[in-house]
Design a protein around this nucleic acid. Structure first.
Lengths: 335, 335
DNA sequence: CTGAAAGCGCTTACAG
DNA sequence: CTGAAAGCGCTTACAG
């Protein structure tokens, strides 16, 4: 049978036969075992190459109880969340590090009964859960069932025992706010995020602490839902309630973009009249026409780090429960 | 062993024992075979329930040569594409119909050698490929290896034999342009998409045909890359080159949003001075502060339809190669 | 360092 | 309608 003609995938058995060794030995070289002589390794490698052999995943999983699959679960399945650049970047990071391994990624939008059962019943070796919202739909104790690392601090009771990577949202928001204070602004407002999201809560706390610490008035507050249009509404509301504001710390770049469009529309100069600091540093923030000053959050790297940590957990290594990544204030044109 | 205490998953063997039947019979009821008596079915079902049995996927795949997995591949892996609301909606649709089946979705960003090999060596039962760009990185003949349905017409040679769902981009763009013409506009520009993307090419063609058909001037053209910031740049360019324009058909909502912000900034009234029609109908288009008139494309439904079609292919049913979905012009405030 | 053998948990002809 | 048996393609003690 010429390799070009065969339609069915070659098996380990055939590789072994071609190399003149046993199936066990062929298996050992496929798996990089050290107890194989150099000559045998070469022969088997040649056979693998020649037959274009790829191990059958199902057979492998069945035999060694590893699936070589890891799940990416996004508990909330609204389009808004999924289209979030932050989420896109995290997924990118996850995909990037997984690409260098033999693991495959399964995608789960929502945390349905079916998904939970899938996760708990040995179909994946581990899970990555990315969620902005607090309501983790019963995913809290998932970590007790299989290795899990969360993107963002989980708000639930199990958080002390869960693994997660995050930034220090309060400190980061504080730094962004401080930039405004240090540049002489005194009537600094904030457009906060949803009151039920840990990241939003922490950023708001960071802003408040910094404002009060500077002896300024922390009353100029409004909220959005992290979307651009909510930023538009929030900015209008802010302007209506406190026409005197000279700066605003916005809890997400998308909302900041919305806020900027309102200021532009109303002919309010940025940063001369009102300075704006965002949060995230999405790609759009760096655009020549935007040049948004913002708190940089390493989203893609967070995805990479989550994945690397999960991989370590899968190798049986011990890691700390929390991994906090660095943020920086990126000063551009709006503040 | 009480079911509550056991840590290992029960096997079919155990279910069979508990029900007092053979493994074969237990397997038959798990798989809904008709050749099982009612009483036996009941007994096995009870055992399954009681033991909380879930079939082992690996064992099942190995035995019946089905993986019950389908791949979602996004050939280009830039953050920009992945954060695209259109893509997010499609994925949502895919996920939604798959949720009602036993299939799981694997996610592949980029079309690396590794991914291609994965797809071609029997690790999934079928694939869904979503791509805006033409350069499908060798995915063209993927359909010869396993069932595949594309989101968007593939531009490559294999397209006549591939399955895809799409909209009639030329006709849809024509309809959007016609809306502008019929409302009395005469100096109608367009912000087109990338010259290497089938959807962009077709939309531009649709605009051109309609403009020329009405005896108008089809010279007012500029291009973006479908991103909001490119819309900003394109709108500025348009205004600089042809200050007389009274309308613009924009090939994507994201670009239209950018264009609108420029008009707002320059104090140009919409739609009084310049009317705008977008394409996609993303969530942001319907926002109270935007109210963008646009060509609605059923993105989520396209994802659903792609998936349903792939499922049919997997069942061995015959389907047409192309499935074209309806678009409509949604008239809001900008035109 | 290498091989024979058992086993992973299912499905599916084949008989009956 | 039901069961015994073979087989899916691997891995992994166990001997040697």
């Amino acid at each position: 049978v010429s390799p070009a003609k065969r339609t069915t995938t070659p098996t380990l058995e055939e590789v072994a036969a071609a190399a003149g060794v046993s199936r066990s030995t062929a298996s050992r070289v496929v798996n990089g075992s050290h107890l194989v002589s150099e000559s045998v390794r070469a022969a088997v490698s040649a056979a693998i190459e020649q037959l274009n052999y790829t191990p059958n995943r199902a057979a492998r999983s069945l035999a060694n109880r590893q699936t070589m699959a890891i799940a990416l679960v996004v508990p909330e399945d609204t389009t808004r969340v999924f289209a979030d650049p932050y989420f896109a970047a995290i997924t990118q990071g996850i995909s990037r590090v997984l690409a260098e391994t033999d693991y495959v990624l399964t995608l789960h939008l929502g945390a349905s009964e079916k998904t939970q059962r899938y996760l708990r019943t040995g179909n994946v070796d581990g899970a990555l859960v990315v969620s902005h919202h607090s309501g983790d739909h019963g995913l809290a104790d998932l970590g007790g069932t299989l290795p899990v690392v969360f993107g963002g601090r989980p708000i639930d009771s199990a958080s002390v025992t869960s693994y997660y990577v995050d930034v220090d949202n309060a400190a980061a928001a504080g730094a962004g706010t401080r930039h405004l204070i240090e540049s002489g602004r005194t009537r600094i407002a904030t457009i906060a995020g949803p009151a039920d999201m840990p990241a939003a809560i922490d950023r708001f706390r960071g802003w408040t602490a910094e404002i009060e610490g500077a002896g300024l008035d922390a009353a100029r507050v409004t909220r959005g839902d992290f979307s651009m249009s909510s930023g538009v509404r929030a900015m209008r509301a802010l302007l209506a309630a406190w026409p005197d504001i000279d700066a605003v710390f916005v809890a997400s770049d998308l909302m900041a973009l919305g806020a900027l469009s309102v200021l532009r529309e109303q002919g309010i100069r940025v940063p001369t009249d009102v300075a704006i600091v965002g949060f995230d540093d999405i790609a759009a923030a760096a655009e020549p026409d935007t040049q948004l000053t913002t708190v940089h959050q390493p989203s893609l790297e967070m995805g990479e780090e989550m994945t690397r940590r999960l991989l370590r957990l899968l190798r049986g290594e011990a890691i700390e429960h929390a991994h906090i990544m660095e943020t920086t204030v990126v000063v551009r044109r709006t503040a």
